[in-house]
Computed example of a mutant assay.
Amino acid sequence: MSSPSSPTRGRPARLDQARTVQTALDLLNESGLDALTMRRLADAMGVQAGALYRYFATKQDLLTAMAERMVGGVADAAGPEGDGDWSERVARLARALRAALLAHRDGARVFAGTHATGPNTLGFADSLMGVLRAAGFGGAEAARALYAVANFTVGHTLEEQAALRPGDGGPTGAEALREAVAEGAYPHLAAALPVLSGTDFTAHFEFGLRLLLDGLRAARR
């Protein structure tokens, strides 16, 4: 007798690890992280909820696999050695990571809550470390620079997605900020409110990334 997740004659298996992760990403994009449950995923897969635990012992294990899938190919953004200044190659990696997380609803929340050690995540880290070490940074400096670039990129994207996500029938983060500043006595915030509540997140990201790279250049000198 076949189990809910095993193939029957002439039919493909309804459940495998790769398809489970892809279905979970589809549900994430459709309804967001808060609505993604193992039961809902099992329903979408057409299996019993218990069948999912064959591949993922916990929901956290599933989220880690999703995070790993999200960043596939990001490591390639650096290009081969000699393809641009080291700082530009680091910038390309940071931009590629941001783009990969933005490609999925709540992508940064998923990634920030995991500690993936798969080939995609480690490949990104190794690629960035390699660029920095080739530029003359020591091992410890390169490791800390890796954390700085990755944490800035993930943190920025986390805030970016949160700012654009409306609450339960309420305003977005940017709208709430405008209302709060308008109702209070915050002259300095009010003067810069168009920037603070603006949605040109690429400009915000590039400004922060430039500051980070300038700091790394100074440290390298």
Rank of each mutant, 00 (worst) to 15 (best):
Ser3Asp: 13
Ser6His: 12
Ser6Ala: 15
Pro7Lys: 10
Thr8Pro: 01
Arg9Gly: 02
Gly10Cys: 06
Pro12Gly: 09
Arg14Trp: 00
Gln17Thr: 13
Thr20Val: 09
Val21Tyr: 02
Leu25Pro: 03
Leu25Tyr: 06
Asp26Lys: 11
Leu27Lys: 07
Leu28Val: 09
Asn29Pro: 01
Glu30Asp: 15
Ala35Phe: 00
Ala35Trp: 00
Thr37Asn: 05
Thr37Phe: 00
Ala42Lys: 10
Met45Arg: 15
Val47Met: 04
Gln48Val: 02
Ala49Tyr: 00
Gly50Trp: 00
Leu52Thr: 06
Leu52Gln: 09
Arg54Ala: 03
Tyr55Ser: 15
Phe56Arg: 12
Lys59Ser: 11
Lys59Val: 04
Asp61Met: 06
Asp61Gln: 13
Asp61Trp: 01
Leu63Ile: 02
Leu63Asp: 06
Met66Ser: 04
Met70Lys: 06
Gly72Gln: 13
Gly72Ser: 14
Gly73His: 05
Val74Cys: 14
Val74His: 12
Gly82Asn: 12
Asp83Met: 01
Glu88Ser: 13
Leu97Arg: 15
Leu97Cys: 05
Leu102His: 12
Leu102Met: 13
Phe111Ile: 02
His115Ser: 12
Gly118His: 07
Gly118Pro: 08
Leu122Ser: 13
Leu122Tyr: 04
Phe124Ser: 08
Phe124Gln: 08
Leu128Met: 15
Met129Tyr: 01
Leu132Pro: 15
Leu132Cys: 15
Leu132Tyr: 10
Arg133His: 07
Phe137Ala: 15
Ala142Lys: 10
Leu146Thr: 09
Tyr147Phe: 05
Val149Met: 04
Ala150Glu: 08
Ala150Asn: 10
Asn151Thr: 12
Phe152Leu: 15
Phe152Ile: 08
Thr153Met: 06
His156Cys: 09
Thr157Arg: 01
Leu158Glu: 09
Gln161Gly: 08
Ala162Gly: 02
Ala163Ser: 06
Leu164Asp: 07
Arg165Phe: 00
Pro166Arg: 11
Gly167Cys: 02
Gly170Asn: 00
Pro171Met: 08
Gly173Ser: 08
Gly173Met: 07
Ala176Lys: 13
Leu177Asp: 04
Leu177Pro: 04
Leu177Trp: 01
Leu177Tyr: 03
Leu177Gly: 05
Ala180Trp: 01
Glu183Ser: 14
Gly184Thr: 14
Gly184Gln: 12
Ala185Gly: 11
His188Lys: 08
His188Asn: 11
Ala190Gly: 10
Ala191Lys: 05
Pro194Val: 03
Leu196Phe: 05
Gly198Arg: 07
Gly198Phe: 00
Phe201Met: 07
Phe201Ile: 05
Thr202Leu: 05
Arg210Pro: 00
Leu211Val: 10
Leu212Trp: 01
Leu213Ala: 10
Asp214Met: 08
Gly215Tyr: 03
Leu216Ser: 07
Leu216Ile: 03
Ala219Ile: 02
Arg220His: 14
Arg221His: 06
